[in-house]
Every structure is written in structure tokens, then in C-alpha cells.
Design a protein around this nucleic acid. Structure first.
Length: 657
RNA sequence: GCGCCCGUGGCGCAAUUGGAUAGCGCAUCGGUCUUCGGAACCGAGGGUUGCAGGUUCGAAUCCUGCCGGGCGUACCA
């Protein structure tokens, strides 16, 4: 059951006739922050008293008098300005633990009104290897999928891969001009990746050549402005001088920015110039940017040769990505990429134009939206469609196919403007009852606070990232095992398996534990720390619980069936029990805001309270047979809660580590 | 220029969306080992929540203005 929800129901009844909107008031019932205020508290008496023009404590007393909770709470206390503090009866808590133990869902009821969700996450570009930027979308989306599904909702996990864009034009162009056939035959994906990078680089080189003089011009103009501003003597007027100083600072910072991007461009151009082979290629392919677009356009128009190549490239690329998912334990129900929607795009544009939602401006079909300075463009001047077009077609398809109540897009925050526009356009198009959510998240940063890159400045491949996490986890596991008092007890093969679980778990947990909206500073050392809020600590706590059962030769199932009861005599037993019973609340919270870090915070609390309990309450050597059984039952529920919670994060446990 | 997001002990992050004395982990210092896994537990120090106003019983949270940072900004995705 959900204790908080039950309390809110009781308060709702006692508020009848007093407030005008009990829902709003009832939302002010919540777990207490400090145990001395009880287990839960209601905070609505103060605003309500204000509204009614009565002393809040009187209002609180009146509501308490009408409140019926004596079946599971001690008498409520009114304290301070009008807080209503509630403390659960310990005997009731014990009985609730027994009920949770008997349930294969740990006492968590499925949602009363199941909804249908489409969760759109991961979405890599098929033509490029997955990199560090894909972690967050993949891991957060997968966790949301698991959690919503556990709560009884219908969830469609759809990987909207990029399999139809300019990247394929690049690969096709590369294939036609630069292919190393032997390499392609032995390692197709690697060779395609090389071709992509090569073509991308050549395109960038020529574009850079074009922008270089412009950039230089801009920089010198900006520097002149700075010099002029710096020379202007103060006027003596305080306000004017302040503004002048501000303008100077701004000009300087723009100038600095221009200088650094110019330097970066010059470096990358010089790299090509210094490499004779590369610069020869660049000279031989001056029109490469246009040619790449032409290859893409031919593909989209159904050119047999390009279509054949696309069909040839796709399977090995997908297989490569699939290997990563397999390792991460991430699955999808559908993988409907951009190409899937290709033949629907034209009718989307026609429909929007016909209904007047879109109009042609500067030759492009645009949806102009209230309060937006830029339109959502759905067809370019040259007739090509954009990802906004595909996204609209995708919404249409998803609604037709699954009639979802909500679509969640787990995509980084830089695309927030795009989604704002997309959602507004979709609503204008008629999708008004559909919940459209951009589940945005911040950038993965390195130790230096800059976007996470390798030392040489390349993006970090996801495969290599996983290898490194597992390698480090292996060290941690081996050291721990070697240091055991009775000597090492885990075989080399098993160590490797455990390292995989610990390494991948650490990687996922570190990401999920953070509020997704902020940037995330990546650190192997932090995420594999043995204590603190990490997967490793949680997995360790789990393994410790299990070791009690094996040491005591206790079978958890038999114990549950034995009819033994739970008794919460010690304060830490009670605290642990309360936490265990709040699993349902943590899940509701995580889902309400699509934020897995509420779940990690909850699991960390459980693990901490278990550790305190473990320290202070001997289990196998408990003072009595009844106490031993009761404590074992608490251990059992702790282990199952940790395992279930971690599973909803997509993290596995091991029984020894 | 405009728009969105952010600023919390030395570092990395929380804070149930306006609730009681702002929490946690690293790091620092000090305790607890003949006891179920010490990869643990208990405790201490460390804060004017970027700055200045305002709103009210109450503000890290809401409003205004500054300061500092990130991202985005018509035909890439």
C-alpha cells in the first residue's frame, strides 16, 4: 500500500466542507523531514487559516478532531504554528511489513488508472558509433520504461534511430570514392565509421575554408570595437559609465570567443594541410559538401544504387549498436527509425499547408507559432524534409497505432526549443489531449567541466567507456576478494561476470542518481567508490544481506511461509521498516516527474538504514528465536526491495562480490 | 540582441516544488574491531543557498534588478 496516499484520503474526508479545494490542501501532506515531528506531517492549516481568517492552530485542531486515522496512527499532534504531526503505530508498521513480505510485488499496487506511454529514448545515429553522449538518454529512458511498466502502465519503448539522414549521404559518398575494400570485408562497421569521419572531415575542411576569412573579418571588427570602447573617456555620469563598462566587457568576451573559435578552426585546417594524403583528397574533392547532399537526396528519391548501398550498410551498423544494448541490458519494443516515416512526410506537409497551420515563407514550408520568433520548418526551399517533419509524422503514427496518453522524449536539453515548437505544432494540428514531454537532461562533462572528450579531443566511444568501467570494477572486485579474511573465494570467471555487473551498474547509477536536468560530471573514481551513493554500495549491501541467509542456512521462502511475525522493538528496526514501506511513494515520485534520482535517493536511504540496523541488531544471534525470525524477515524484505529497486534502474545484483 | 537553463560548505551533488534547525557523499579530524562481510558503523568541524531588494506566518524555492556561467536562436539532427 501507499501510506502517504492513504493519509491523504483520510484528510480529504476530514476536510469536507472546510476548504474549497481539498486536492490542493491534501497535497500538503508529506513525510516528515525530521523524525522528531513524527513520520508524516500535514502543512495545510497555515494557508487554510489565512484564507478562513482563523488561527491556524484552531483550524488544525478542528480537522484533527474530524480525522479518523486511529486504526494506524497514534493521536495526531498539532505543533508550532499549526503543523499536524502524525506517527504511525509501530504494531501497524509491523503488520504492514508482514503484508509486504507476503506479496510478490512487495505490497505495491499497480496504478488504479493505467496509462499508455510511448518512451522515445537512445536514438543513436546508425552511421556513427555510439558515444558518451548516448548514455544518458539510453539509461534514463530505460529506467523510466521499467518503472512505468512495473507500476502497471502500458509502455511502448521505441528507439527512433537516425538511419536516413545526411550521415548516410556521407557514407555513400565515402564508399564510392574512398573505400578500402579489404577493410570493409573484414570489419564493415569500422570501415564505414572511417569513411564517415573522413568525409565529415573533408566537408568540414571546405566549409572551414569558406568561413575562415569571414571569421577573421568579424574578429578584427570586434577588436576594433573593443579598442574604441576602451579609449572612450568616462563621462562622469554614473549610469552612463556603468553601461559603457558593461558594453566593453561584453565586447571583450565576444572578441575572446571569436578568437578561440578562430584558433580552433585554424588548428583543424592546419591538420589537414599538414597531412599530404588528406590535403590531396581535399583538393580532389572541392565540391564534396554539395555532393554529399546530392547522394542523400538520391537516396531519398529512391535511387536504386544508393538504396542498395543503404540496405547493405544498415544491418551491420544495427548489429553493432545491438551489441552495446545487450551489454547494457537495454531493450526496445520497436526500432522505428527516420526511414520508417519517409513516405509519410509529404502528406504531413500537405495536410498542414491545406489546413493553414503551415504556410510557405521564403520558399520553405513553415509552422509559425505564437510567442516564437522562429518557425518550425517542415520543408526546405529545396524540397527536402527535416527532422521536425519526421517528428510530426511520428506523432501521427504513434497515435494511430497505440493511442498513447503520453509520449516521452528522452533527449538532451539543447533540443528544448525544437520540442517546444514541435509540441506546439502538434497541438495546433489537433493532438490536444496527448501529453507530450521533453524529458531533457544535461551534458556529460569531464573533470575539467568541459564536455567529456578523450585527451586528443575526440568524443569517447561508448564501447570503450564500458570496457574501462568494467576493467576498473574488476580491480575493485579482485582487491576486495583477495582481502577477505578467509582468502579469495571467487573464481576468475566469476570475478569477470561480477565486474561486468558492478562496472555497468556503477556507470548507470552515477547517471541516474543525478537530477537529470543538470549537467553531469563524469568520473570513474566517483562512480566506482565503495561507499557513498553508488551502485557498488547498494550491491554490496545486497550481498551482505544474502550472506546472512547462507551463513545461517536459512531459506527465505520457508521462513516467510513459517508464519513467523515481525516485531519492531528497536528504533532502527522501526526506521528500516518505515523506509521499506515507502517504496511505493518513491516510485510515484520518480514517475510523477520522470526523475529516477528520486528512486536512487530512496534506495540509498534503505541501504543506510539497513547498515544501521545491521550494526545494532544481531540477526543470527538475536536474543530470542522470535526476534531472530523477525529480523530475518526484515533482511528478506530489504534484499527484495533493493533488488527490485535496482532492477527498475536497469542494474543487476550479485549474491557475492 | 532575444529565449531557455543554472549558481547551495574545499570538491561532487540533494532538498518531496513555499514548511519547522538547508541534507548527503567525497575530502579533513576523532571514535567503534575476541560478534552475522571493516567494501561497515558512530561522531565533529565546515554555509549570510552568487549579490541587492521585494512578496508572507514562513523563501534555496516565487517576483524585480544586477553579477557570473551554460545552451539555443529559419531551412543539420
Amino acid at each position: 500500500m501507499n501510506i502517504l496516499a492513504e493519509l491523504q484520503n483520510r484528510f480529504r474526508a476530514s476536510l469536507a466542507g472546510i476548504g474549497d479545494d481539498p486536492t490542493e490542501l491534501v497535497a500538503m501532506v508529506r513525510p516528515s523531514q525530521d523524525p522528531k515531528f513524527g513520520d508524516y506531517q500535514a502543512n495545510f492549516a497555515m494557508p487554510l487559516g489565512k484564507r478562513l481568517g482563523r488561527p491556524p492552530r484552531d483550524v488544525a485542531a478542528e480537522i484533527v478532531a474530524k480525522l479518523s486515522v486511529d486504526d494506524f496512527c497514534d493521536p495526531p499532534q498539532v505543533e508550532g504554528p499549526g503543523f499536524i504531526n502524525l506517527r504511525l503505530k509501530t504494531s501497524w508498521l509491523a503488520a504492514a511489513v508482514e503484508r509486504a513480505l507476503a506479496s510478490d510485488r512487495l505490497g505495491i499496487e499497480p496504478a488504479a488508472v493505467p496509462r499508455t506511454y510511448v518512451v522515445d529514448y537512445s536514438a543513436p545515429n546508425v552511421a556513427k558509433p555510439m558515444h558518451v553522449g548516448h548514455i544518458r538518454s539510453t539509461v534514463i529512458g530505460d529506467s523510466l520504461k521499467r518503472t512505468l511498466r512495473f507500476l502497471g502502465h502500458r509502455v511502448i519503448a521505441d528507439n527512433h534511430i537516425g538511419d536516413w539522414g545526411t550521415q548516410f549521404g556521407m557514407i555513400i559518398y565515402g564508399y564510392k570514392h574512398f573505400l578500402d575494400r579489404a577493410a570493409y570485408q573484414s570489419k564493415a562497421v569500422e570501415e564505414l565509421g572511417r569513411l564517415y569521419r573522413l568525409v565529415n572531415r573533408l566537408v568540414g575542411y571546405h566549409e572551414g575554408q569558406e568561413t575562415l576569412p569571414k571569421l577573421r573579418e568579424q574578429l578584427s571588427a570586434q577588436r576594433a570595437e573593443v579598442a574604441k570602447a576602451a579609449k572612450t573617456p568616462p563621462l562622469g555620469d554614473k549610469g552612463a559609465d556603468k553601461n559603457a563598462a558593461k558594453a566593453l566587457r561584453r565586447a571583450e568576451s565576444i572578441s575572446k570567443e571569436l578568437a578561440s573559435s578562430l584558433a580552433a578552426l585554424e588548428t583543424s585546417l592546419a591538420e589537414v594541410d599538414r597531412d599530404p594524403a588528406l590535403s590531396a583528397l581535399a583538393r580532389r574533392h572541392p565540391e564534396i559538401a554539395r555532393a554529399v547532399l546530392a547522394e542523400t537526396a538520391k537516396l531519398h528519391q529512391g535511387d536504386p544504387e544508393n538504396l542498395r548501398l543503404w540496405r547493405e550498410f544498415l544491418p551491420p551498423c544495427l548489429a553493432d549498436i545491438e551489441r552495446i544494448y545487450l551489454r547494457l541490458g537495454v531493450t526496445f519494443d520497436y526500432t522505428l527509425g527516420e526511414s520508417f516515416y519517409h513516405d509519410r512526410l509529404e502528406s504531413v506537409v500537405d495536410d498542414l499547408l491545406r489546413s493553414g497551420i503551415a504556410r510557405v515563407s521564403d520558399g520553405a514550408a513553415c509552422v509559425f507559432l505564437a510567442g516564437q520568433t522562429t518557425p518550425l520548418i517542415i520543408r526546405k526551399q529545396d524540397g527536402a524534409f527535416l527532422y521536425g517533419t519526421t517528428d510530426l509524422a511520428t506523432i501521427e503514427y504513434r497515435v494511430q497505432t497505440w493511442s498513447p496518453d503520453a509520449i516521452l522524449y528522452v533527449v538532451d536539453h539543447r533540443q528544448s526549443l525544437h520540442f517546444e515548437q514541435l509540441f506546439a505544432a502538434a497541438r495546433a494540428w489537433g493532438y490536444k489531449d496527448l501529453e507530450l514531454q521533453h524529458i531533457s537532461f544535461g551534458t556529460v562533462l569531464g573533470d575539467d567541466g568541459r564536455p567529456f572528450k578523450t585527451r586528443s579531443g575526440d568524443t569517447v566511444g561508448l564501447g570503450g567507456l564500458l570496457d574501462e568501467a568494467v576493467r576498473r570494477a574488476h580491480q575493485v572486485v579482485s582487491q576486495g576478494d583477495d582481502a577477505k579474511p578467509g582468502g579469495a573465494e571467487i573464481s576468475p570467471e566469476r570475478r569477470q561476470q561480477i565486474a561486468e555487473v558492478v562496472g555497468i551498474g556503477a556507470l548507470k547509477y552515477a547517471d541516474l542518481a543525478q537530477n537529470r536536468t543538470s549537467d553531469y560530471m563524469f568520473s570513474y573514481d566517483r562512480m566506482l567508490a565503495m561507499n557513498g551513493n553508488t551502485a557498488t554500495y547498494m550491491q554490496y549491501a545486497y550481498a551482505r544481506v544474502l550472506s546472512i541467509f547462507s551463513k545461517g542456512e536459512v531459506d527465505a521462502g520457508a521462513l516467510r511461509a513459517s508464519g513467523a511475525g515481525v516485531d519492531l522493538a528497536h528504533p532502527v528496526e522501526r526506521a528500516l521498516a518505515l523506509s521499506l514501506l515507502q517504496f511505493s511513494e518513491a516510485l510515484d515520485q520518480a514517475v510523477a516527474e520522470y526523475r529516477p534520482n528520486f528512486l536512487t535517493a530512496y534506495l540509498f536511504e534503505v541501504a543506510n538504514r539497513y547498515s544501521s540496523f545491521f550494526e545494532q541488531c544481531p540477526v543470527l544471534k538475536a536474543p530470542s528465536e522470535a526476534s531472530r525470525a523477525s529480523r530475518l524477515l526484515l533482511c528478506d524484505l530489504t534484499a527484495r526491495t533493493l533488488r527490485q529497486g535496482l532492477e527498475l534502474l536497469g542494474i543487476q545484483v550479485v549474491d557475492k562480490m
